[in-house]
Design a protein around this nucleic acid. Structure first.
Length: 282
DNA sequence: GCGACAG
DNA sequence: ATCTTGTCGC
């Protein structure tokens, strides 16, 4: 029974393209294709969690949906929660996934027409270490993590994978810092990106000491020296993920994640402002 | 052996 | 993750 459970979970993580929509390199649509608009990638979601300064356990989960053609926000939702699980490197999903999955689920239940066809996550996908145990987690969480990671033989299982499997959505992981794994580290990546044979490239594949491909480091803006780290979350290949990220990068961080980030911070900042006004009248 | 480690 | 000011450059 436990073994069968593991088999099912292993098969749920897909790092190949598995979606119904189509993606054109130019995203141009020919004449007479209006009846088939559902077949094109149009709505891309972005999720992020921001935190309160006053109360570090208070968090704001945020979901935004952008129109791929205009890169404008067409939907946003927020959810305030109190987090009881601490942040532990490698176990970000246990802290942030529940809120984000809940907001997604709410949107789906309401039958919202803007429900995303693809989700970009502020956090890694398969670019993620496994098999390390840390203390501050409860036994329940450790067992859950163990069940999810044990069957995987060729990849990690970061926040983007976690959300993708639970919500059954194609997801892309976007890291703003490198999570050290399989011999990869910031200095090595910077060395490769800056190397003369790569000087024309703004993209390098992240190959670990074991030879495994974990994702890609991308210099998304000409001027930026600090790359972003792209990896497959769920139901998408690295190649496709890279293409989509490149098409949504107005700035260093792709728009869906950037907008979720900005609006999430804004929401919690305004909340704190209102709380302080109340105190002034008390 | 110890430290490094997404947000 | 979060605080915060100015500063440089397109």
């Amino acid at each position: 029974m436990g073994r069968g459970e593991q088999e099912i979970l292993r098969e749920k993580l897909m790092t190949e393209d598995n979606f119904t929509w189509k993606l054109l390199s130019t995203q141009d649509k020919g004449e007479g294709s209006k009846e088939k608009e559902d077949e094109w990638l149009r709505y891309i979601g972005g999720v992020d969690v921001s935190f309160s300064n006053d109360d570090s356990s208070m968090a704001c989960g945020t979901l935004v949906v952008l129109d791929f053609n205009t890169l404008k926000v067409v939907y946003e939702d927020f959810s305030l929660v109190t987090l009881h699980v601490p942040y532990v490197p490698g176990f970000l999903a246990f802290r942030e996934a529940p809120v984000l999955v809940e907001i997604l689920d709410k949107m789906k239940r309401n039958g919202n027409p803007f429900y995303p066809q693809l989700l970009m996550v502020d956090g890694n996908g398969i670019l993620h270490p496994r098999g390390k145990l840390f203390f501050p987690l409860s036994l329940h969480h450790l067992l859950f993590m163990w069940k999810l990671t044990k069957p995987l033989t060729c990849a990690g299982f970061g926040l983007a994978c976690h959300i993708g499997v639970v919500a059954d959505l194609p997801t892309i992981g976007i890291g703003k810092n490198l999570h050290h794994v399989d011999g990869l580290d910031q200095s090595k990546v910077r060395e490769l990106l800056g190397a003369k044979e790569n000087s024309s490239k703004d993209l390098i594949t992240l190959v670990g000491s074991s030879g495994h491909i974990w994702g890609a480091a991308m210099r998304s803006t000409k001027a930026s020296v600090k790359p972003i780290y792209i990896s497959s979350g769920h139901r998408i290949s690295l190649q496709t993920a890279i293409r989509i990220v490149q098409m949504t990068c107005k700035y260093r961080v792709p728009e869906p994640v950037r907008q979720a980030d900005i609006r999430s911070r804004d929401y919690i900042r305004k909340l704190e402002m209102n709380a302080k006004r109340k105190n002034r009248f008390a």
